[in-house]
Amino acid sequence: MLCLLHRSFIKGAQSLYSFCFEMSSAVAPIFGVLGSCMGCMIFVENIAKQEPSAMNLMTFSTFLFIATHGIIFTSKFFTVGNKIPLKGYVKTVSMFFIVNVVNNQALNYHVPVPLHIIFRSGSLLATLVLSVLLVGKSYSPRKYISVIAITVGIVICTLATSSQGSDSGLSYEEASKHYREWSIGIAMLSFALLASAFLAICQQQMYEVYGKHPDEAMFITHFVALPFFLLMGGDILSAAEKLSASKPYPLLPFNIPSLWIDLLGSCILQYLCIKFVYQLNSRVDSLTVTLVVTLRKFLSLIVSIVYFKNPFTSQHWVGAILVFAGTLAFADIWGSSAPAKKIDEKKSQ
């Protein structure tokens, strides 16, 4: 009996040590995700508030920045061969381009950034629906309840934002135009939600066939999509002129337009955000990644409300809590056996 207790104690101590070591190695990526992703949202919202028509330019700049970095450091000026053939990227690149453009462009249709964050937090809803319909997966009742909570939360926040528009003091014609454009933005976010879930399925299928090569995938998905932006060339050039006309950045000695500084900041931080998420995914279990990403979205929501003084009523808070709590419940983040289970799996390999 004593021998059994001793062995159980040793095994528990080893599991605890392994978990603590794993988490200590993830400290830098966790703070990297929180800092870079939240910082990126500040730059994005600042651009969206001052020049909402620059969303296509912002998307193109991010793609160009990450693609250029990939050419230099990942493909080493195309001297390193791809581990995944280009034909394997076709669906992923197409959906990735569509999701990013539509999500960012929705900010041009009077969709407030807090609602934008909450909407994008509902990706589990679309993932569950498409996984059931396209892949034939089945889920536990708890996950369906979680998705219902997420759906209700998004609906509550959307209705709350809609009612704010009617009380804004606009004339009937202005309010009607504002509501029509806002409805287009909501439709775009809804479409992007489904497209994002389909993108996740495409990525999963690609990794199952060719293996996981995150650095290469990040480079190729951004680089191959660049020609698509030619379709938006006129809009991008027009937005560039508007950014150049913005007031000079106060902390620099040269008269550099402030919105160009914001755009550069968003590109750098967006790259770091993606990079740190990939690093985190390689060091901890998926539940921890879900917790960190959900925490990042919630903190970004708080920053958007406080820093940019966005209106956020008690109705919004109820909806937001339902969305984030439903996300954590769906991921079963409160299951205490996740770290130990992962350690046992590693030992059995």
Rank of each mutant, 00 (worst) to 15 (best):
M1V: 13
C3L: 15
H6W: 14
H6E: 15
S8M: 14
F9D: 11
F9E: 14
I10T: 08
K11C: 13
K11Y: 10
K11N: 13
G12L: 04
Q14C: 09
Q14I: 10
S15V: 14
L16R: 09
M23I: 12
S24I: 04
A26D: 03
A28Q: 08
P29F: 04
P29R: 01
P29S: 08
I30C: 09
F31S: 01
V33T: 06
L34T: 06
S36G: 00
S36T: 03
C37E: 11
V44P: 02
E45F: 08
E45G: 04
Q50P: 06
P52E: 02
L57S: 08
F60L: 11
T62M: 12
L64E: 09
I72N: 08
F73D: 06
F73T: 12
F77T: 03
G81Y: 00
Y89I: 03
Y89C: 04
V90A: 14
K91P: 05
K91I: 12
V102F: 11
Q105M: 15
Q105L: 13
A106M: 09
A106G: 10
N108I: 03
V113D: 08
V113L: 11
I118P: 00
G122T: 04
S123V: 15
T127W: 01
V129L: 14
V132Q: 08
V132E: 11
V135E: 13
G136K: 01
R142V: 08
Y144R: 07
S146P: 08
T151K: 01
G153L: 05
G153V: 05
I154F: 12
T158R: 05
S163A: 11
G165Q: 02
L170D: 07
S171W: 03
A175D: 07
S176P: 00
Y179H: 07
Y179A: 12
E181L: 14
E181R: 03
W182L: 09
S183E: 01
A187N: 03
S190P: 04
A192C: 02
L199A: 01
I201N: 02
Q203W: 05
Q203K: 07
E208I: 02
K212S: 14
D215A: 13
E216G: 00
A217W: 00
A217D: 08
M218P: 00
F219M: 06
H222P: 03
F223A: 15
V224Y: 07
L226Q: 06
P227H: 06
F229R: 05
L230W: 06
I236S: 03
K247T: 15
P248A: 09
L251K: 06
L252S: 05
I256D: 08
I256Q: 06
I261V: 15
I261L: 07
L263C: 12
L263N: 10
C267T: 09
C273E: 10
F276A: 05
F276Y: 14
F276D: 03
F276E: 02
Q279V: 07
S282F: 02
S282K: 07
S286R: 06
S286C: 10
S286W: 01
T290L: 04
T294F: 11
L295R: 00
F298C: 13
L301M: 10
I302N: 05
S304A: 12
I305A: 06
V306F: 00
Y307T: 03
Y307L: 14
F308E: 01
F308N: 02
W317E: 04
V323F: 10
A325P: 02
W334E: 12
S336M: 10
S336T: 14
S337C: 00
A338H: 13
P339V: 10
E345N: 09
K346M: 15
K346R: 15
K346V: 15
K347W: 13
